[in-house]
Amino acid sequence: MLIGVPKEIKNHEYRVGLTPAGVQELTEAGHDVIIQTMAGDAIGFIDNDYVAAGAEIVGSAEEVFERAQMIVKVKEPQPNECKMLRAEQTLFTYLHLAPDPEQAKLLLASGATCIAYETVTDANGGLPLLAPMSEVAGRMSIQAAAHTLEKAQGGRGVLLGGVPGVESAKVVVIGGGVVGLHAARMAMGLGADVTILDRSLPRLKQIDEMFDGRIKTLFSNKATIEQQISDADAVIGAVLIPGAAAPKLVTREMLKGMKKDTVLVDVAIDQGGCFETSRATTHEEPTYVVDGIIHYCVANIPGAVARTSTLALTNATLPFVVALANKGSKQAMMDDVHLCNGLNVYKGIYTCKAVADALDSEYVEPMTALKEK
């Protein structure tokens, strides 16, 4: 199979779909790989590294899309990239289609096979290709909150860990999944006063035992959220419904009860955000203010630490890339129900129920679609 990796084009996105080591595994398995020139240059993966691993360097994204049978990316394709996709191609990347009807329609129109990292599952019910970036995003959310709280950045002028004789900042994490757990761990490590909210009592018990009671745990409901954010210095939105739009758990009305210059970090922004007042921002302009509350809603938080993120992501994605290349995308998905769960769009139809429901569109079960088309 001929696998193509274009250079990412989102604002301040420096990650790349394959590392040189990943290319080497594919070429040694008998596959051909083309990489757009300078695709990994910003994070130290230069063209010569890819050539040494067996890849061919090409000059443009247009050539990658024109020649490759499978496109491997990191972020969702931008409109001009969607329009370059062909019906016989496979796209393997993050998609986050539920809050993005424009991208969804363009992918439908392409006729391509579109597999989303974020809905691939594993035998334990986890999301193995989302997890590494969730770990990074969770940890980065606390770094972002700490920086944004600085007075020079418009924040309250509060140090997360305080100092002897001065209380620590209060950090409230909404959601006890991978993002929330890593955010809480990072905030606790910096000395903050951390509370984590979740609707799963077994998960709250697990977190309590994991941290030996050093992190407060509370059952999440509207009243608890409103009460906890009222005296928080930073609030981390870390909720996830796989494939679906994130629920709006913090309303605009709730902002009125919060302290001025509190920081909201919405890690769920890729799925539409879990704060009613959230809108996607970039690393170039990461924050904005609504009713005196600072919002940090960068849609590619892990892109800020792009080398670490690329290595972590490709550790997880490469076995699936190899399977897709070895067997062809259709057979690989028919052989692996967990990879099949990643299929979001197939030959002009939606094959992820959460996406179809969010976009009020018809849904076909993925395995059924593979067998029928």
Rank of each mutant, 00 (worst) to 15 (best):
D193T: 08
L204F: 04
G175E: 05
G175A: 12
L181P: 01
G176K: 08
I174T: 04
G189A: 11
A192Q: 01
D198N: 15
G180W: 07
L181Y: 14
G176S: 10
G176F: 05
A187S: 01
G191L: 05
R199K: 15
R185E: 13
S200D: 12
A192W: 04
I174P: 00
R203N: 13
G180E: 01
A192I: 02
P202C: 13
I207V: 15
M186G: 07
V173G: 01
T195W: 09
A187T: 01
G175M: 07
R203L: 10
V194T: 10
L181K: 13
G177Q: 05
A183F: 02
A187Y: 00
G176I: 07
R199V: 15
V194N: 12
V172M: 08
G175K: 08
R199M: 15
V178L: 00
D198F: 11
V178D: 05
L190W: 14
I196M: 12
Q206A: 15
L181F: 13
R185I: 10
Q206C: 04
H182F: 10
A187Q: 00
R203M: 13
L204H: 09
I207D: 12
S200Q: 09
I174L: 12
A192R: 03
V173S: 03
I174C: 01
A192T: 00
I174E: 00
L201G: 05
L190D: 06
V172D: 04
Q206Y: 12
A192G: 00
V179P: 10
P202F: 12
V173F: 03
V172A: 09
I174R: 03
V172Y: 02
R203T: 11
L197A: 07
S200G: 07
G180R: 06
D193C: 06
L201D: 03
G177A: 01
D198I: 11
S200W: 00
L181A: 08
D193R: 12
